[in-house]
Every structure is written in structure tokens, then in C-alpha cells.
Design a protein around this nucleic acid. Structure first.
Length: 288
DNA sequence: ACCCAGGGTCGTC
DNA sequence: GACGACCCTGGG
């Protein structure tokens, strides 16, 4: 595969740091020049913002423009979305100005399922390390500019890992969950194509939660970061914290019922709840 | 050295 | 429906 380049000029709502560090993805790493390099599918890409230009460079299986347009949701109008969300209240307005260049990626369903099973009661640096080790052991090597990258393993490739193998890669108690989920998908007990082709949120969430290690929050993340269901609202410790601070004001945030937060999010943010969640998450986590 | 918390889920009461 | 356990690692 040869290297391709794609340059966007004067494109609004695109900031690599915001996109890659808002917690939706785990395989993008910053370089010294502020650009990010990552691997998705069999594509390796470097994304650099230079003045009014966004430069995509790398090796893609297909046309780089098509690949980037899909992966970065370039056809989605974030200006319009941000305008709409900014009107809701000043908290959201502030969080949006903080993470103004966030875009939700369209990531591979299978990879996103496994990644977020690993995310349970875990921290981002460790999650990234685990996924990298899984890819190095069970994925395939692709070289670009003398550097080696490893694809995330396919279902078949990862199915060769035993529970013990996974434990040795540092998954901890998530080893069994990843193993069983992989087997269920391999055996077509859960049909990922059927999920991809469905528009029924309730059906999708129900199906995803049949997988070991996938509860409500992980299912929401999968739906948001892979299937781009912008109306779902994943509630993790950070979002619980910020929602309590801003609106609920309970003295003990751990006592706040998730249902109360979900209801509030639905009322306030409605069909853009997932995006609101992402701006709030990034704002809170980056130390606002 | 010790303790705590991290993009939660699961089994048990 | 609440409650504690759970692998492991970086940071206080």
C-alpha cells in the first residue's frame, strides 16, 4: 500500500487533541509536533493541524478521502450541533468552547465492544496499554516509515487467546469477559451485522448487554462511539460528578441515582445527549 | 510503605 | 434493588 495525503482547508470543528483525547478512542498517540498517529482497521494515519489546514497522511486500504470522511464523520455539521447545544445553558456553552473541536468517530463495532469491556473500573493509560498488547500479540503488523503498527485482531484472531493468555496481557478480572464475549460473537450467538443494520436503540442495547462485561454504560459507549447514536448518554464517574455539581448538588455524588441523571440528560439534551456528555466529560476530565 | 481511584459489571443477599 | 468484590497500575 502506498502513502496517500488528504488536506482539508478552512474546515471548522476539528481539533486533533479534542478528538483523540476526549476518551472515545484508545489507539491514537500524540507526537512531538502535536500531530496524532493512530491505527484503525488496516489504515494507519497521521493527523496534523497546521494553521487553517488539516493534513491527513498515511496508508489506507481504500481512498483516503473516503476513509477519513467516514471515520471522522466529516459530513456531520458540528457548527449546527454546537449552536443548538449552546442555547441550552451556560454550563454547556462553556464546556463546548473548551472542547470546540471534538468530533465523534465512527469506530469499528467489534473493536469498540472489546475496548469498552476493558474500560470497566479502569483508567485510560492502562486501557491503552492492554489494547496495544492485545494488538501486538494477536493482530497483524503494518509498517509505515520504519515504524511498526499492529491492527486490532479480528474475532477469529482474538478467539485463539485463552483466558489465561488474556490474564497474562494484564486484563485482570476482565479476561473471562473478553474471552466469553469473543466466543459468543464468533459463534454468531450475537450477530454484529444485524446490530449494525438496526435503527432500534432498545433492541441494540438489549443485544449488546447479552455480552459478558457489557452493562448499561458500556453499551451506551459502544452505541455512541461506534454506531454514532447521538441520543444515548453514557454515565461514568466523571459525568456523574459533573452532572451532580452543575444541577443536582447532592453532597455525596456516589449516592445520586443513575436514573435521575439519565432523566435529567434526556430532558435537557434530548437527541444530542451523547454529544453533550462528551463535551462535559472532556471539560471535567481536562481539569476545568 | 500505604492507600486510593480509575469511562462498571457481576454475583449475592 | 442495594452492596461489596474484583486485577492492576499510576499518583498522592
Amino acid at each position: 500500500m502506498r502513502e496517500q495525503v488528504f488536506i482539508l482547508e478552512n474546515f471548522k470543528s476539528f481539533e486533533p487533541k479534542h478528538i483523540f483525547e476526549c476518551g472515545q478512542c484508545f489507539r491514537w498517540n500524540v507526537k512531538e509536533d502535536g500531530s496524532y498517529t493512530g491505527i484503525f482497521g488496516n489504515n494507519i494515519l497521521n493527523v496534523k493541524k497546521d494553521g487553517n489546514k488539516i493534513i491527513f497522511k498515511g496508508i489506507c486500504e481504500e481512498n483516503i478521502i473516503k476513509t477519513c470522511t467516514e471515520y471522522f464523520n466529516l459530513d456531520t455539521n458540528y457548527e449546527k450541533i454546537k449552536d443548538e447545544l449552546s442555547k441550552i445553558d451556560d454550563y454547556l456553552k462553556t464546556s463546548i468552547s473548551y472542547g470546540n473541536g471534538i468530533r465523534i468517530l465512527k469506530q469499528d463495532l467489534w473493536e469498540t465492544i472489546i475496548s469498552f469491556i476493558i474500560s470497566a473500573n479502569n483508567n485510560i493509560p492502562r486501557i491503552k496499554g492492554i489494547i496495544e498488547r492485545i494488538s501486538k500479540k494477536y493482530g497483524n503488523e503494518i509498517k509505515w516509515n520504519e515504524e511498526s503498527f499492529y491492527t486490532f485482531p479480528t474475532v477469529e484472531e482474538l478467539s485463539k487467546a485463552s483466558v489465561q493468555d488474556l490474564r497474562e496481557l494484564g486484563l485482570g478480572f476482565r479476561d473471562k469477559r473478553v474471552y466469553e464475549t469473543t466466543q459468543m460473537i464468533l459463534n454468531k450467538e450475537i450477530d454484529l451485522d444485524k446490530i449494525k443494520n438496526s435503527n432500534d436503540i432498545e433492541y441494540i442495547k438489549e443485544e449488546l448487554q447479552k455480552l459478558p462485561g457489557v452493562g448499561g454504560k458500556v453499551a451506551d459507549c459502544i452505541m455512541l462511539f461506534s454506531l454514532n447514536k447521538f441520543e444515548v448518554f453514557p454515565i461514568d464517574v466523571w459525568v456523574r460528578r459533573v452532572m451532580n455539581e452543575l444541577y443536582i448538588k447532592n453532597e455525596d455524588e456516589t449516592k445520586v441515582d443513575k436514573k435521575e441523571i439519565a432523566k435529567l440528560a434526556q430532558e435537557k439534551y434530548s437527541n444530542l445527549a451523547g454529544l453533550a456528555q462528551q463535551y462535559l466529560f472532556y471539560w471535567k476530565r481536562e481539569g476545568a
